[in-house]
Design a protein around this nucleic acid. Structure first.
Length: 908
RNA sequence: GCGCGGUUAGCUCAGCGGUAGAGCGCCUCUCUUACACAGAGGAUGUCACAGGUUCAAAUCCUGUACCGCGCACCA
C-alpha cells in the first residue's frame, strides 16, 4: 500500500528530469496548428528567483500547458536578461567582499567575470524554473540571453534603424544621474520618495549690499552654481527688481534678477534661485534666458567650480558648511520644516542628482503614436482592462528616452570615433587609463558635437573618411531595457527572417507584473510596431506583486521575504503553485504567508488520496476500465453533470485569463462534490455487482479531473496519471499530450435538483445526530414522510444514499407516517423526518430547536410575503423571480405548519 | 493636484443586481480502512459611511472618510 501522505520531492525530481530528457516542451514550426506563444519575461541574472518569479512563471506555465492540451502548438520561449545596472551592482558587491573594485580589474577582466557569473547564475535560474515545473525546453540551444550573439545582432539592427531614421540622437540634456552607480538613468528608473527636509530662506543682497531678495530652497549647496534669481514678471513685490544685479552670497559673483512666468507667486518667497546645472526647471529657465550653466557637482557627487573651501566635498558636507557660513554671514533668514519627494535610483536607492550631460536618446513621440493607436483599438488588449488607460496616458506624455549608461555590463553602444578626423571635437585624453571607462585613453563625458560617429557592429577596420586606424568606441552601454524592448522578436532571431519569427510572431500573450508596464511592455509594443510592423502580442496579462501577509512589499532589508525554493522544499511545487494561482485574482497584489501553503498542500494530499482509494479497488491486472456506463443512476448522472459544468467553467475562465476561477472550480468540484459525496456514495456500490461500472465512471471523472488540473499542478497529476494510465486507456507518455477534457453533454434537467433534495435530507439527519450527540458509530433509524406521495418516489429509488451517508439502519419512506413517540423531527423541503431516539427525548432541547426553526421560517415567510404584497414587485420583477418567491413563501408556510403540529405533540 | 485600486466573518480574501461565501482560525463529535494534511456538525457579518437609481443594492450612480498604489508638482 502506498503511504498515506504524499511526498512531493521524489515525484518532482523524477518528472522534471524526464520532461526535459524526453523533450516534452520542444515546439517546432507546425503550420497545420495554431501557435500559442508566450515569451518569458527574462529574469535578471542577479541571483535566485523570488516569489514574484514563482507567480509570474506559474501563471505562464498554466497557460502554456492548458493551450497545448487544447491542441495548439504552444511554445514558451525561455531566456534570461543580463540586467544591466542591477547585475553589475551584484558583481561589484561580490568584488567588494574580495576587497576589490571593478577598476582594479579593468573593463576587460571585469566583463570576463560577468560572463562567468552569467554561466552560474543563468544556470541556477533555469534550474529553478524547471523545479517550478515550467514547461520550458531548457536545452542549451533553446535558451536565449539578452546579450548572446543573436540578441546582439538584434540590438545593433534596432540601433541602426533608429539612427538612420533620426530617432536616435546624442544631445546635451539634464538627465538623472546616480552618483553611486555612476551612470545616467532614464526618467522611469527614478523612484520618488517623500522625505522630511527643510526649506531654507536665504537673502541675496543687491549689488550695492542693500536689501535684495529672499529665495527659498531645499538645496542650498547648489547656490554656488546659481546664475540668476527668477521672479514672476507679474509679481508686484519683485517686478521692479527685474534686470537688477544681486550679489551671490559666499561668492563674489553678481547674478541678475530675471522674470519668468514659470515662477509660482505662491510658493516659498516667490523668488527662485536659478541653478541651470542642477535642477530640471532651472535648466529650462537657463536655456530660455541664455544663462550660464555652472556645474558645481561632479559625476561623483563632489563639489567643483566653487569657492576653494567647498571643493571636493560631498553634497551633504557642502550643504552643512554652506548653511553654517550663510548663518555666520547673516544670509540665512528662516528654516522651515518641509516635506517633499526626492528622486532615488531604483537600483540602489541613492539620491538622484540632476546633471547636465551629453547622452544618447531615443525620440519617443513618433514611436508612441502607433502604440497608442494599438492600445486604443485593443490590438493589444489588457487583462484586466483597467491598465488600458494608464498605459495610453503614459504613452501620451512620453519623454525622450535616455538610453546610454555609463556602466560596463551591457550592449556597448555600436559607435566609434576617428581620433584623427575628430581630434579637435572629441573630449579625448590619450594615455593614462581611465577609471570610468576602464580603458586607456579617455573619452570624457563632455560634448562630442562636431565629431562624426561611425556606426558599426564590430570594430571598424579603418575610418571610412580618412582611413585612419586610431578609432575609439563609445565607452557607454545601452540601457538594459533597450534589448528587453526587442525581446518578443529578438528571441526568434530578428533581423534574420527566420521561419520561427514568421510562425511565432506576433506572440499570444505577455504575462507580467504591473510594475514594468511602462518600463517594458510599452517599449515592447513600440519596438514591435516599429521594427516588425505588428504588435508583439495581442494580450497582456497583468498580475500583481506578491507582498507579505500585511501587504508590505517583500524586501531583503525588512526581512519579510519568503523564498519560493524553501517553500517548495517544505510543501512541494504543486502546493505552492496551487496557492499562488488561487490568489492571483484580478491583477491585484497578493498578500502571501507561509500558512496559506498548508491549504495547497492539503489539496495535493487529497488528490493523492483519491487515487489511493481508486487504486485500492482496481484489479491487479490492468485493463482499460474508464468509461461512462449505460444506465446511470442518479448519483452518476449528478457527478457527470457537475464534472461537465466544472470543465465548462474552467474553459470560460481560461479565455478570460481567470486562472484563480479555474483552479477554484476544480478544487471545489474534486473536494466538495467528488470526494465528499460521490465517492462516499460509490463505496458501498464497489461491494456489489455494480463495481465495475462505478469504477469505470470513477476513473472517467477522476482521470478527466487530473487532466484538467494538470496545467496548474503538473507533478502530482502526472504521477497519478502515470499509475492509472493502463486503466484509463491512455497511450500517451505524458499527461501534457492528452487532450484537455470538456465538452461533455449534460444529463437530465432534474438531476441536480433531485440530488440536492437527497443531500439536504442527509444533511438534516446528520445535523440531528450532531445536536443529539449520537456517535457516528451508532446507527439510527429514520422515518421520512410527506403529504404528497409523489415526492417520496425519488427517495424510494435511492434509499441507499440516505442509509449510507446519514448512517441509518432502518429507513422507512412512506406517506402519512406518524411520528413515533420518542423521536425528534427535522424538516427538509416537503419531507418530515422522524428520528426515534433511545429513552426520552429531551423535550426542552427539542422545543427550543423547533422554536428557533419556526422563528427563522417566520422571518422568511414575512420577507417573501412582503415582496409579494408589493404591487411594484409583482408588476416589475421578472416572472421567474416572482415564481421563486411564491414557492419560497409556500415552502415556509408548509414548514411552519408542520412544525406547529409537532410542537403541539411535544406539549402533550 | 490627477488617476487607479481597496474597505465583506477573528485573519486573508471571493462574490459585483434577486434570501451573505471560501480558506485559515475557533467550538463539538469522530482515528467510520482514501485522506486527522481527514470526516460530520456548529458559532461568527448594521457587506466603511451618507445620499441616490431600482420592484429589489454588498453588487449600479454620486459624495465622504480611511488605507494602498501610480503619475505629475515639489524653489
Amino acid at each position: 500500500m502506498l503511504p498515506k501522505v504524499y511526498d512531493p520531492k521524489p515525484v518532482e525530481d523524477k518528472w522534471s528530469e524526464l520532461w526535459q530528457k524526453e523533450k516534452l516542451f520542444v515546439s517546432t514550426v507546425d503550420k497545420s496548428k495554431k501557435a500559442f506563444v508566450v515569451v518569458i519575461p527574462p529574469p535578471n541574472i542577479t541571483g535566485a528567483l523570488h516569489m514574484g518569479h514563482a507567480l509570474n512563471n506559474s501563471l505562464q506555465d498554466s497557460l502554456i500547458r492548458y493551450e497545448r492540451m487544447t491542441g495548439k502548438e504552444a511554445y514558451w520561449v525561455p531566456g534570461t536578461d543580463h540586467g544591466g545596472i542591477a547585475t553589475q551592482n551584484v558583481m561589484e558587491k561580490m568584488l567588494r567582499a574580495e576587497g576589490k573594485t571593478k577598476e582594479d580589474l579593468g573593463r576587460e577582466k571585469f566583463l570576463e567575470r560577468m560572463w562567468v557569473w552569467y554561466g552560474e547564475c543563468g544556470g541556477t535560474i533555469l534550474n529553478q524554473l524547471r523545479k517550478l515545473g515550467c514547461a520550458l525546453d531548457t536545452s542549451k540551444d533553446n535558451v536565449r540571453f539578452t546579450m548572446d550573439e543573436t540578441r546582439a545582432g538584434s540590438v545593433f539592427e534596432a540601433f541602426r534603424t533608429l539612427w538612420e531614421k533620426g530617432l536616435l540622437y546624442r544631445d546635451e540634456r539634464m538627465i538623472n544621474w546616480c552618483t553611486r552607480c555612476e551612470t545616467a538613468l532614464s526618467d522611469i528608473e527614478v523612484e520618488y520618495e517623500e522625505e522630511k527636509s527643510k526649506l531654507w530662506h536665504i537673502h541675496y543682497p543687491l549689488e550695492n549690499g542693500s536689501r535684495g531678495l529672499v529665495v527659498a530652497t531645499t538645496r542650498p549647496e547648489t547656490m554656488v552654481g546659481d546664475t540668476a534669481v527668477a521672479v514672476n514678471p507679474e509679481d508686484p513685490r519683485y517686478k521692479v527688481l527685474i534686470g537688477k544685479k544681486l550679489k551671490l552670497p559666499l561668492t563674489d559673483r553678481l547674478i541678475p534678477v530675471i522674470g519668468d512666468t514659470e515662477v509660482d507667486l505662491e510658493f516659498g518667497t516667490g523668488a527662485v534661485k536659478v541653478t541651470p546645472a542642477h535642477d530640471p526647471l532651472d535648466f529650462t529657465i537657463g536655456q530660455r534666458h541664455g544663462l550660464e550653466t555652472i556645474q558645481v557637482i561632479d559625476f561623483n557627487g563632489k563639489m567643483i567650480n566653487c569657492p576653494e573651501k567647498y571643493k571636493g566635498k560631498s553634497v551633504q558636507a557642502a550643504r552643512k558648511e554652506i548653511l553654517e557660513d550663510l548663518k555666520t554671514g547673516e544670509f540665512l533668514e528662516k528654516e522651515e520644516q518641509y516635506k517633499h519627494s526626492v528622486g532615488k535610483c531604483d537600483r540602489c536607492k541613492q539620491h538622484i542628482e540632476p546633471l547636465v550631460s551629453e547622452q544618447w536618446f531615443v525620440k519617443m513621440k513618433d514611436l508612441a503614436a502607433p502604440a497608442i493607436a494599438a492600445a486604443e483599438k485593443e490590438e493589444v488588449k489588457f487583462y484586466p482592462v483597467s491598465w488600458k488607460k494608464p498605459f495610453i496616458d503614459w504613452l501620451k506624455n512620453i519623454q525622450d528616452w535616455c538610453v546610454s549608461r555609463q556602466i560596463w555590463w551591457g550592449h556597448r553602444i555600436p559607435v566609434w570615433y576617428c581620433l584623427d578626423c575628430d581630434k579637435n571635437t572629441l573630449p579625448y585624453v590619450a594615455g593614462a587609463a581611465s577609471a570610468r571607462t576602464g580603458e586607456s585613453g579617455v573619452l570624457l563625458p563632455g560634448s562630442r558635437k562636431g565629431s562624426n560617429p561611425i556606426l558599426s557592429m564590430n570594430t571598424p577596420e579603418k575610418c571610412p573618411k580618412c582611413g585612419g586606424h586610431d578609432l575609439i568606441q563609445d565607452p557607454d552601454v545601452l540601457d538594459t531595457w533597450f534589448s528587453s524592448a526587442l525581446w518578443p522578436f529578438s528571441v526568434f532571431g530578428w533581423p534574420k527572417k527566420t521561419e520561427e519569427l514568421n510562425y511565432y510572431y506576433p506572440t499570444s500573450v505577455m504575462v507580467t507584473g504591473y510594475e514594468i508596464i511602462y518600463l517594458w511592455v510599452a517599449r515592447m509594443v513600440m519596438s514591435g510596431l516599429e521594427h516588425m510592423g505588428r504588435v508583439p502580442f495581442s494580450h497582456v496579462y497583468v498580475h500583481g506583486i506578491i507582498r507579505d501577509k500585511h501587504g508590505k512589499k517583500m524586501s531583503k532589508s525588512l526581512g519579510n521575504g519568503i523564498d519560493p525554493l524553501t517553500m517548495i522544499e517544505k510543501y512541494g511545487t504543486d502546493a505552492m503553485r496551487f496557492t499562488i494561482l488561487s490568489q492571483a485574482i484580478g491583477g491585484k497584489d497578493i498578500p502571501f504567508s507561509e500558512e496559506a501553503l498548508v491549504g495547497g498542500r492539503n489539496f495535493v494530499n487529497k488528490i493523492y488520496n483519491v487515487s489511493r482509494f481508486i487504486q485500492m479497488n482496481l484489479p491487479e491486472t490492468p485493463r482499460v476500465m474508464s468509461a461512462v456506463p449505460e444506465d446511470l443512476e442518479l448519483a452518476d448522472e449528478w457527478i457527470l453533470e457537475r464534472y461537465n459544468k466544472t470543465l465548462e467553467k474552467v474553459r470560460v475562465s481560461m479565455t478570460d485569463y481567470d486562472i484563480p476561477a479555474s483552479v477554484g472550480a476544480l478544487y471545489s468540484f474534486l473536494w466538495d462534490e467528488f470526494c465528499d459525496w460521490y465517492l462516499e456514495l460509490a463505496k458501498p456500490r464497489l461491494e456489489t455487482a455494480d463495481k465495475y461500472r462505478v469504477l469505470g465512471l470513477l476513473l472517467h471523472v477522476f482521470g478527466g479531473t487530473l487532466k484538467a488540473l494538470h496545467p496548474f499542478m503538473p507533478y502530482v497529476t502526472e504521477e497519478i496519471f502515470a499509475s492509472l494510465k493502463p486503466y484509463l486507456g491512455s497511450d500517451k507518455p505524458f499527461l501534457l499530450k492528452e487532450p484537455y477534457p470538456g465538452g461533455g453533454k449534460t444529463g437530465s434537467v432534474n438531476t441536480e435538483a433531485d440530488m440536492k433534495k437527497i443531500m439536504d435530507i442527509i444533511t438534516q439527519i446528520r445535523m440531528v445526530r450532531a445536536q443529539l450527540e449520537i456517535s457516528p458509530a451508532k446507527n439510527i433509524n429514520a422515518l421520512i414522510t410527506s403529504a404528497n406521495e409523489k415526492d417520496l418516489e425519488l427517495l424510494k429509488k435511492h434509499p441507499g444514499y440516505i442509509t449510507r451517508l446519514a448512517k441509518t439502519d432502518k429507513l422507512d419512506i412512506a406517506p402519512g407516517l406518524a411520528k413515533p413517540p420518542h423521536a425528534v423531527t427535522s424538516l427538509s423541503g416537503p419531507f418530515n423526518i422522524y428520528i426515534p431516539v433511545d429513552g426520552v427525548v429531551d423535550l426542552e432541547k427539542e422545543r427550543s430547536r423547533i422554536a428557533k426553526e419556526t422563528e427563522k421560517l417566520t422571518a422568511e415567510l414575512f420577507a417573501a410575503d412582503t415582496r409579494l404584497q408589493n404591487e411594484n414587485f409583482v408588476s416589475h420583477a421578472p416572472k421567474e423571480e416572482i415564481e421563486k418567491i411564491t414557492l419560497r413563501k409556500a415552502d415556509a408556510e408548509s414548514r411552519i405548519n408542520r412544525l406547529r403540529e409537532i410542537a403541539k405533540d411535544l406539549a402533550l
